[in-house]
Design a protein around this nucleic acid. Sequence first.
DNA 1: AATGAATGAGTTTTCATTCAT
DNA 2: AATGAATGAAAACTCATTCAT
Lengths: 210, 210, 210, 210
Amino acid sequence: MARAAASKSQTRIQREKTEQILAAALVVFSKYGFRGSTIDQIANEAGLSKPNLLYYFDGKDEIHARLLARMLDTWLAPLRTLDETGDPVEEILGYVTRKLEMARDYPRESRLFANEILQGAPRVIDQIKGPLKNLVDEKAEVIRHWAAEGKIADVDPYHLIFSIWATTQHYADFNAQVSVILGPRADDWFDGARSYLTKLFICALRPAKA
Amino acid sequence: MARAAASKSQTRIQREKTEQILAAALVVFSKYGFRGSTIDQIANEAGLSKPNLLYYFDGKDEIHARLLARMLDTWLAPLRTLDETGDPVEEILGYVTRKLEMARDYPRESRLFANEILQGAPRVIDQIKGPLKNLVDEKAEVIRHWAAEGKIADVDPYHLIFSIWATTQHYADFNAQVSVILGPRADDWFDGARSYLTKLFICALRPAKA
Amino acid sequence: MARAAASKSQTRIQREKTEQILAAALVVFSKYGFRGSTIDQIANEAGLSKPNLLYYFDGKDEIHARLLARMLDTWLAPLRTLDETGDPVEEILGYVTRKLEMARDYPRESRLFANEILQGAPRVIDQIKGPLKNLVDEKAEVIRHWAAEGKIADVDPYHLIFSIWATTQHYADFNAQVSVILGPRADDWFDGARSYLTKLFICALRPAKA
Amino acid sequence: MARAAASKSQTRIQREKTEQILAAALVVFSKYGFRGSTIDQIANEAGLSKPNLLYYFDGKDEIHARLLARMLDTWLAPLRTLDETGDPVEEILGYVTRKLEMARDYPRESRLFANEILQGAPRVIDQIKGPLKNLVDEKAEVIRHWAAEGKIADVDPYHLIFSIWATTQHYADFNAQVSVILGPRADDWFDGARSYLTKLFICALRPAKA
DNA sequence: AATGAATGAGTTTTCATTCAT
DNA sequence: AATGAATGAAAACTCATTCAT
């Protein structure tokens, strides 16, 4: 009962179709949420028949799980690169920028994740409790050190991280609203946001004068 | 086939049941999203039979629409109170605090709204384009004036508002994640968040020294 | 989520439909086996729509389970009446006759049960290990006593019981074959079988001459 | 589209694969019944790919048909050996023993057959009406002669045969039940059954004293 | 107003079978 | 001969909605 997607050595077609399906699933899931999406929609978007799609994946759940799993790595990558030996303010601002770029370049991934968390993270709670929390704890410690050494202002590292996530992902997750409000300037949200957020966080991080 | 909900003069019972249903719908919709929720769940939560629920509302769509409609007012209230004659920094910080309180006191409402926007706001796009945008434009103008007059720092008012929304609602919308990351301190997120955000925005708004 | 079939106080309609469905399910399951039967067939046989049928039962499994459960009692009734204070040979012959009557009067029930056991009893194994085994053990003990006291021949009570089950149920379970082989006399199989089996078991049970 | 299975002269490989498939099909069909078995299961059990399996057989139906066809011969073999020139009681007891050995050695074959008959013998009805009935009629005639000549008791030969079939096959067909009821002694059912059945049928056949 | 009953239109999934190589 | 890929038809179940009372 070896399923194609599970075998170690995949054929070219298998890889292609798997990618095709995951790409289609991302489009659909990020738009309608898990429950709101149908396999039909995904199959359609992928240009496959429903049974053919199910030849590659065991079901809706598995597609979703695979999507989220592969996403989490990418999602955490920017935080991982936060370097404790680098310049603190620069490091954090760099993180903000990278997150903002991700919101621009991978808005659907962001919405997929947001959808999941919004509904209580039923399917990724383990990964949040494990890898994600560990990474955040680690980097929070780095930030705390910087603050203790006076290299940055005395901020709570967790709330700092939350605010970075929130402000950057907002442009992807709530794009429907942002677009309407920015009106004709919506297409250039990125530059405005970067400029604003850079100022915001520079200010927040600048160490108090001695 | 006069439906209760349509008639102008509702009896007390009608009003009560309507409230009961909307309250139940909020619980369910905010948890599972629109498509993920079933009328059965809502009826159950409301303690009514499904047909009885549908006596008061034309259907799932209508319940959802009514819920969002009534919420939007509440949702925008804090921004409405932003007083152009008040102290700029105080006004904005007050707005931040009120939004944070709403995230604490009405997390389900926040998630309901977030769910809707996330999926492209299909059912509230009109209200976003109308009342919401108008209000934001109006208050953005106020903020711009403050900035022009040097009463606050020179920030883009729209991105400022986005950042306030994002940072405050984050605690409601992404609560599943916040809880895990804060661990045992999760219950007290409010104080930590208020303290952090107050500092963040004070700093961002403090006018540059002349 | 209270399902009709589960509530304690059923309406007349509920009882009727439930019976209707179980009767239809017996016809279908006994003919095609569990996997070979479809809800469509049962609904059709019952004169109901499929969703309506599923309004009364949670699914195919539940229908099958309910059928088997209610049947087991009936099925074991004849053995239960085996009276240790009665005349041994008469008691056992009476049991044979009652089992044969059941094969005549409830052939579909017999086949339903046979089907289940044949496939390893996946859904009734617990009831076999429990109530059925207990009852058989109890009655086997009775028979053993009779044999020990010389009231019947020295037979293994378990194999005796097996042979009674086998020979009587054969007429129901393998009716398709029996009918063909008996040809025109098939309709009267009962009398022939009773006569034959009576002789068979009288002979087997008659205590050896002292 | 010459199919392997149809061609007269099969290569060694073809014969081997055919056997492999039939062996696998026996395992699966006897366990789950015809409808409950899938080609996937059979292919898996046979260690072949599904399309490859279907290269050798036209479909599920054909595999099943072939299996039953080849089985029927084996199945009837013991009865065929019933020799009218032999000692009547010995011949019949020998038949009982051989049937019991088959129940022990080929329980899956027995269950496959039982499954089929239980469901009305849709796929073997012709062979039952033909070869099987003919053989039974022939041997019944032999038995009747023996009875008429007073060599055995005056029993109905058809019901005698039924009872032999029933009592012996019971151990294979209803093994799930037998095992539970015999408990720890289940592994040795054969000796107990042979001893019991031998006594049972000796007694039934012993001619009445003159 | 209220509810038990019913249903049509999906939605996921399974599976025998075919296609292409 | 063999297999990866594909599919149409069915099957189980779900759910918003309607019916009847």
